[in-house]
Computed example of a mutant assay.
Amino acid sequence: MKTLLNIIWVVLSGFWLFLGYMFAALIMFVLIVTIPWGIAAARIGLYSLWPFGRDVVERPTSGLGATLGNIVWVVLAGWWLAIEHIVSGLALCVTIIGIPFGIANFKMVPVALLPLGKRIVDKP
């Protein structure tokens, strides 16, 4: 079931979200100083490409560094990636079949805004 949901997800919105994250990662890698944010963008981009069967959990050891890094992330790329999720979620919620995928998009908004201090794990 997860595979079927992921295939539908990729077709409806996952590919475009993936491209947005990879573009953000590319910008972060080019700026060199922001490479840690580029790694986070690539990690979340792969998650946004194939999200069902995985979950985002908080890292208990993240602290002030993650908080300061998230502030920089919001300014550089987080706000427009979050808007991308919101717009995609609203568009998907127009149809009955798209509502679960729209809700999945809305669940990704906090990760798009504040990715540092979180990790992506497989669901059991």
Rank of each mutant, 00 (worst) to 15 (best):
I27A: 05
V121K: 06
L12N: 02
I103S: 08
V11Y: 09
I27C: 06
I7P: 05
P110Y: 04
L26Y: 15
T34C: 08
I83E: 13
I96Q: 08
S88C: 07
P60V: 06
K118P: 02
L64A: 11
F52L: 05
K107S: 13
V72S: 02
S62P: 02
W80Q: 01
P110R: 03
F18E: 08
F29E: 03
I7T: 14
I99L: 12
L90Y: 09
S48M: 08
V56N: 01
V74T: 11
M108E: 01
A25S: 15
I27S: 11
L12Q: 12
W80I: 03
Y47N: 13
F18P: 07
K123V: 15
T67I: 12
G20C: 13
L114Q: 12
Y47I: 03
N70I: 10
I8G: 14
Y47R: 14
L46Q: 12
V56F: 10
S48Y: 02
L90A: 06
V94A: 13
R54N: 09
Y47P: 11
D122N: 14
T34S: 11
P36R: 02
W50R: 03
P110W: 04
P124Q: 07
L90K: 08
T61D: 15
A77C: 12
A112K: 00
A41N: 04
I96D: 12
R119V: 01
S13Q: 08
G53A: 14
E84M: 03
C93L: 08
G53N: 10
T95H: 14
L114D: 01
I103F: 06
K107R: 13
P100W: 08
G65L: 14
M1L: 07
P110E: 06
E84I: 01
L26D: 14
G117H: 03
L49Y: 11
K118V: 12
K2H: 05
P115K: 06
